[in-house]
């Protein structure tokens, strides 16, 4: 395999970081099939914990204290606050979302799989560049996975027609981007991360409010009813 030749026997650290990344990708796939509001939110929490773990592991490996902070902030905001805000605002935490998929689950999984594959191969040159450009790059290794996560999140938003899954899709999209930034953008100015987190909080509140408004208006979490405006 031509692409595979750049692998220079990855260290255990690299493997673990990549494995967490793969875990994030797998939770993304699981979100495609989650049937309950609560399970969707829980999946997001698991996914965010994995992101925090990646940040922590990369921070330890690179001795980068900024990443410790990113890890801690990720954990507090994404695992605790954002889910709490969403659940508080929704107050219907066992709503059934199973009707919101626009096709059968296996088809969705295969579509998402193809998307992920595209993401993988888009990420390859990137990864090669980052490896060649900066010597061994533990985290840069995971770029293809990060891009796959972003694309699968897109697929999730498109294939699920309910507000919860779409919001979960957006937030997990953001998780993918966070992973990407951890992967390639080392020594990113800390203010960037803080601002992004702040933004995430605002977004969570607004998404929550809009979901609640939607739920009040339509008595459903599905977005199938949103077909009034066209042309």
């Amino acid at each position: 395999m031509a692409v595979a030749t750049v692998v220079s026997s990855p260290s255990a650290f690299t493997s673990i970081v990549t494995l967490f990344g793969v875990g994030v990708l797998v939770t993304e796939f699981l979100m495609l099939r989650a049937h309950l509001l609560r399970s969707q939110v829980r999946l997001y929490m698991v996914q965010s914990s994995l992101v925090a773990a990646v940040a922590l592991a990369t921070g330890i490996e690179q001795g980068n204290s900024g990443l410790y902070a990113v890890s801690a902030l990720s954990f507090i905001i994404k695992v605790v606050i954002v889910p709490m805000v969403i659940l508080r605002l929704m107050r219907v935490d066992s709503a059934d979302l199973s009707q919101s998929a626009i096709m059968k689950l296996p088809s969705m999984l295969y579509i998402a799989l193809v998307t992920a594959a595209c993401g993988f191969f888009i990420g390859v040159p990137f990864r090669t560049a980052s490896v060649i450009g900066r010597g061994t790059a533990t985290a840069g290794n995971a770029v293809p996975i990060d891009i796959a996560i972003v694309l699968v999140a897109f697929t999730l938003i498109v294939l699920r027609r309910d507000v919860i899954s779409q919001v979960a899709g957006f937030f997990s999209l953001e998780n993918g981007i966070t992973l990407f930034s951890i992967s390639v953008a080392r020594n990113m100015p800390f203010i960037t991360d803080v601002a992004t987190f702040f933004d995430l909080l605002v977004a969570a509140v607004v998404f929550g409010l809009l979901m609640r408004l939607h739920h009040m208006k339509t008595r459903t979490l599905s977005t199938h009813v949103l077909d009034r405006l066209k042309g």
Partner: peptide
């Protein structure tokens, strides 16, 4: 059960992909 098998298939394909793009 098809969903279960689709899920397993997905993981198997991911394994191959992850390897092919050189991250694993």
């Amino acid at each position: 059960i098809t969903e279960y098998l689709a899920g397993s298939f997905l993981i198997a394909v991911l394994a191959l992909l992850v390897y092919l793009v050189g991250v694993g």
